[in-house]
Amino acid sequence: MIETGRFLIKQISVFSENRPGRLAAIAKALEEENINILAFSIAEADGFGVVRTLVDKPKKAYEKLTGLGFNVAFTDVIAVQMRDAPGGLYEIAKMLGDGQINIEYSYAYSGKEGAVLILRVDNADQAVRLISSRGATLLESRVFQ
């Protein structure tokens, strides 16, 4: 049985009001601590949003942002290497769909590993086992952190 824990990556989720300067404030705070933002996405609702970022030092980022008064949570995500060709995204989505795993959201990361999909799913352990059993490549958390 595959040990799934090493594929779970700690994402930082930050509650943010939809007002100018909030994203900049987050970025500036992280920069002050020499924390690299590897990927990020913003989910917006009416009046507020959640900024999700993948950083190289999540614990430090959590402490810094919390210290500044931000509402911060850790969320486990996984990273799957995508075939860099049409249909790459579809393959992964179908794989998870067939396995009854819901994708809550996803966003892209592009590094030296090529195109990578960051995924938040409802059952990460099961997703890791499924994806590896189907021969797709998962990136370990130490690649980022």
């Binding site: 989720s13 609702a45 959640v50 949570a73």
Partner: peptide, 14 residues
């Protein structure tokens, strides 16, 4: 939003 109840899910916040 209290710190304890913040999850990263938009649906929870809604």
């Amino acid at each position: 939003v209290s710190r304890e109840s913040f999850s990263d899910k938009i649906t929870d916040l809604m």
